[in-house]
Design a protein around this nucleic acid. Structure first.
Lengths: 344, 344
DNA sequence: TTGTATGCGTTATCAG
DNA sequence: CTGATAACGCATACAA
């Protein structure tokens, strides 16, 4: 089977290849009539230009890549739409590219940039522990969205949009403490580079310390290091363990909403009530926390605004309107049914 | 900024480009020492081969594309992993490509096939209403997974893996009826081509008819035609309407689990209980239905097996081991807390 | 307005 | 084992 090319079309139309090319790409300097004729033949022949050849030739394509690590994270689902919209509004092409948890996102990015001649790139998810020189390899504007930078890299080398995980985490633990809770368990994800988990854990510690509440290490539960450590299942298992242990606690803080849901299930299954017996809080602000029964108290990250700001920064960079920026959004504490004041 | 190419590497190494190419692609006929030397220089130079050029040149790449329509559908999340695994196990490269709801998936497929020299392709999601001649344009093996074909296309032109939506739908409505429910509301997605919704609706009608239960059209609720018609929000709104209307009903059948969750929320919010006042059932078998409170009765589609079978069929096709196949999986009725027997 | 020729970065063929 | 060189399919400068 011989694939049909632009040459075949040219031949079939009795014109030169460049004319066909011009027709395809809506060039101005082409006779409208021949253009129509060519397009007609293209339709009939089911001709589809080869993108590889095109990308190879092109020097300037208006396209933005979004690299997403952990595409199964429900947290990202709503962001994707916003990115697509924002990027297309600016007349750029939007490419979503999933990177496997075992892959190096910068490596993948570099490849994609060359292949697709990207003008800009946004990194979504994953933990970003790369050397400075590695980042400097990326010659086009990029912004890290919803990513915690672990290492001390020069802030001038990249842009970022995020929430202050420590601060927000402290906020929600503060809320629990304000409601009389002192024995607060936390479900974290244990892993060397899962920086977000560590940051939220730090917020937890900070809150307790600030109130002189002793930290009981037995109430800090880590999941196994798995690709899906923030899952409902892990939240469920950890909570089961917790309940079965002798440790006393009055509240559970799950560092992700999914884990919080798993925690709720485990509690309810054991015959206990929420929030009468245990209060539960999550983190992220997934839609499901609103729909869950009871609805779950959580910190909502303003993902739409964050996605918009991400694209804005990216395009400012592309248009040389500004230097690298770091924008931190404030999370919103959503107090719902899963938490209650503790009666002394 | 001049991008670095294979030529530069060749020059830097004092060898020919072909040798560099051989080094990169692990060709057998190359001196191991020079290979190491070249790879060293490549690392140092941060050289990354241009995929476009490569794809352009290559005639046979072992890669499979998975086209997914509605990537925000949680239903697909778990399938993706299986596809990746299965495909990589067969030493093929896996490419996930998202297609927008406004795009024509076959069009996109054709483009991707040319660009990436795909060996096979799987279509995931969306409704598939294409002309036969359009399908015949796809010259490589492909299989439709979890897609209802609306039109009467020749079964020899494609392969498919699915559940029998009418049958499964009837099954779950039968279950409700067997438990004494007669006034069963259904939350459907109304849209011309949302064939899955129509199929499930048909199963609903079939079940009721087979029991001589009159069908009350007022209990059939359609969402607005939106890109996200299967959402929790829609389930919530529809159920609100239903409750506020004068219609009596004892059970709600939501044609998706997400809608079922929305329905639950609406019911609970109105002060009613599940399943004492209303029974609720969903469809799909998302994990969340297990974790929800109450856990939700649903039909679980065996997505892992379906994804595996999909890849199996695809590779059989690629290896010419078989002709187009159509595999229908049986859904599993999961009876949980959201449903109860109706006392007369 | 249109056609011809060149090159984008790789891989493969074919001599050496 | 290695090095020139010809494609791959397209866009574009330049010539017509």
């Amino acid at each position: 089977m011989k694939a049909i090319t632009i040459k075949d079309i040219a031949k079939k139309c009795g014109v030169g290849v460049s004319t066909v090319s011009r027709a395809i790409n809506n060039h101005p300097d082409i006779n409208e009539e021949t253009r129509r004729m060519i397009m007609e033949v293209i339709k009939e022949s089911n001709f589809i230009p080869n993108n590889s050849a095109r990308n190879l030739k092109l020097s300037d394509t208006k396209t933005i890549g979004v690299l997403i690590k952990g595409i199964d994270n429900p947290f990202f689902q709503n962001m994707i739409k916003v990115f697509e919209e924002e990027i297309q509004n600016r007349k750029y092409t939007f490419i979503l590219h999933r990177v496997d948890s075992s892959q190096d996102e910068v490596e993948v990015a570099l490849e994609l940039i060359k292949e697709k001649r990207l003008k800009g790139i946004v990194f979504l998810g994953g933990s970003f522990s790369h050397q400075e020189d590695k980042l400097q390899e990326i010659k086009i504007p990029f912004v890290l969205s919803t990513i915690a930078i672990t290492d001390n890299v020069d802030k001038n080398l990249y842009s970022s949009v995020s929430v202050d995980d420590v601060y927000e985490s402290k906020k929600i633990v503060d809320f629990l403490c304000d409601n009389g809770h002192k024995k607060i368990a936390i479900l974290a994800s244990y892993s060397t580079d899962m920086s977000i988990s560590n940051l939220r854990l730090e917020g937890y510690r900070k809150s307790l310390r600030s109130r002189n509440i002793p930290i009981n290490e037995n109430l800090i539960r880590y999941t196994w290091d798995s690709p899906n450590s923030y899952s409902m299942e892990n939240g469920y298992n950890l909570t089961k363990e917790l309940i079965n242990s002798k440790e006393e606690f009055t509240a559970i803080y799950a560092i992700s909403d999914s884990m919080a849901i798993g925690a709720c299930k485990a509690i309810l299954e054991s015959g206990k009530r929420i929030p009468e017996d245990y209060s539960v809080v999550g983190f992220d602000g997934l839609d499901i926390t609103y729909y869950y029964n009871p609805s779950i108290t959580t910190i909502r990250q303003p993902i739409e605004e964050m996605a918009k700001e991400t694209t804005k920064i990216l395009f400012d960079l592309i248009n040389k309107k500004s230097k690298n920026q770091h924008k931190i959004f404030e999370g919103k504490l959503l107090v719902r049914q899963s938490t209650s004041k503790l009666d002394k």
